[in-house]
């Protein structure tokens, strides 16, 4: 992973610090993404990042690429337009769980179905942060949100399964608490030809953490690590891994690269797919 000094080269320093709350892991994700951009060797002039509306989406304004902060949920369509009109650009989408899966769900799945060469990053913190902690399509059953004061009763989306079903040709899930893995997965996703989708388990200490008594940033990162039960359990108790008491773990979500295939990429041009 590249150093802070290198990563800062890709930030609009004059705009920092960013607007996100203390302990919000979105910045960790952004950092890992920038590290991957460096690792893959993408020319910053040829990198475009498009975002929707929400906390995660505000992050793109700080990235020193060509950045477009679009409308709520619609980032994949803007990104499609950019990529199709100028194929030499590397185009990524930053989206939140509400942005990408609720209001923008249709755009997301159709981008996957077309297999446009985009890298979509979905920041999943199980809540609407920007608007004040309302329930999202990813909120776990039982979790408290401002619009689910007795606990959410709706089943959450499994974003990765959804995207595999929709035809995304690279689907991965990673945790903000594992920045090195995250950066590697981002690099793979950026390298992938076709639509790559990376769901990142992030946190919202301000709302989700507070409503559900999960603590602040450090504790929530620990909880995320714990949900990845492949590694967290054996490493629990080691202080270098953010963690809290590990017993009675719910079944963890599957992390890593979950799906990979090759399918013709949509270009919208004569000669059709490449």
């Amino acid at each position: 992973m590249t150093t802070t000094a290198q990563v800062r080269e890709h930030l609009r320093g004059w705009a920092m610090p960013h607007v996100l709350c203390p302990g919000c892991a979105h910045g960790i994700v952004g950092r890992a993404f920038l590290s991957a951009v460096d690792d893959v060797g993408i020319d910053p002039d040829q990198m475009a990042v498009v975002a929707g509306i929400g906390c995660s989406s505000r992050l793109v304004g700080y990235l020193d690429f060509c950045t477009l902060h679009a409308t709520h949920g619609r980032a994949p369509s803007f990104a499609a337009g950019i990529k199709l009109a100028r194929p030499e650009l590397t185009v990524a989408v930053f989206s939140g769980d509400g942005d990408g899966l609720a209001i923008g769900g249709n755009h997301l799945i159709h981008a996957a179905r077309r297999n446009i060469d985009l890298t979509v990053v979905l920041f999943n913190n199980e809540i609407y942060g920007m608007t004040g902690g309302q329930a999202a399509p990813t909120t776990s059953v039982g979790a408290i949100a401002s619009t689910a004061p007795r606990g959410s009763v709706e089943s959450p989306f499994d974003a990765c399964k959804l995207m595999i079903g929709a035809g995304a040709t690279f689907v991965a899930r990673a945790a903000a608490s594992e920045p090195y893995t995250l950066a590697r997965i981002f690099a793979d996703a950026l390298d992938h030809e076709g639509l790559s989708f990376v769901e990142v388990l992030s946190d919202c200490p301000t709302y989700f953490g507070r409503y559900n008594k999960l603590g602040s940033g450090p504790e929530m990162l620990a909880a995320i690590t714990r949900s990845d039960n492949r590694i967290a359990i054996p490493l629990a108790g080691k202080r270098s891994i953010p963690t809290i008491d590990p017993p009675d773990l719910p079944p963890g979500v599957e992390l890593g690269t979950l799906h990979r295939e090759h399918r013709p990429v949509f270009t919208g041009r004569a000669g059709g797919a490449t």
Binding site: F78, A80, G81, I82, H107, G268
Partner: peptide, 22 residues
């Protein structure tokens, strides 16, 4: 480039994206 989008919202979204791509 011609692309048939999933609705009119995304149609104009793609058009605006293309506009910024030149």
């Amino acid at each position: 480039v011609f692309v048939q989008m999933e609705d009119e919202i995304s149609s104009l979204g793609a058009v605006i994206g293309a506009a910024f791509a030149g």
